[in-house]
Amino acid sequence: MSPDPWVRAYDLLPVMLSVLLTGALVTLQVTAGAFVLAIGIGLVFAVLRTMPARLPRLIAATYVQVFRGVPVLTQLFVIYFGLAELGLRLDPLTAAIIGFGINGGAYLTEVFRAGIESIHQGQIEAAYMLGMTRMMGLRIIVLPQAVRVVLPPLGNFAVGLLKDTALASAVAAPELTFRGRTLVDQTYLSTQVYLLVAAIYLAMSLPLAHFVRRLELRLGRGRA
């Protein structure tokens, strides 16, 4: 008589948890790496996007359009499989970080742009009249204020990114979802494993989301 799957799952719980939690660690790694990359890219393109010259604006706008209009899974496949075809073999982790980073950068470009543009034009003109160049004005007046505007959306982006990294399993990055799939292949306990996977994602994303919400409230209060 085959044992009840739930009983089996209970017996295997410690093993399964240890496997899944190592995957969760990789999830956090990918999230962190992609987050930093996305911020860097987003800042650069946001500045390009708000320049008076047409060419930088156009380049940035095209970048945003393309990388936001194509599914991130497709972008991931282009980077992992596509580049391999051209001879550049990346390991799954790196490919995932680059893929999510570039994709996230397109999203953050718009977030940062909104932050920059939210700073009233009059202040920028006052900065100009003090003899500041556009770059100086951006650095000294706009950016410090824009940071406050931008933090909540940035936080929400991080939460979304954490969940998106599940797709990295499709390129065999050893993160949580991938570990889950291999565990299911080995144990055939799909329901139980995926419930565990869901629980671990919740354990990671809910506190982060809560933190972001509190941040939003605190920032909102600060400006009254």
Partner: peptide
């Protein structure tokens, strides 16, 4: 523009700086 000063209808002070920091900003940074 360092030789020209402009006073705007809507003041355009920098809200994240105190009064004295607003006044100091030009000399220090420019």
């Amino acid at each position: 523009r360092t030789g020209i000063g402009m006073v705007f209808q809507r003041f355009n002070l920098f809200p994240h700086l105190t009064a004295i920091e607003n006044v100091m900003l030009g000399p220090v940074k420019v």
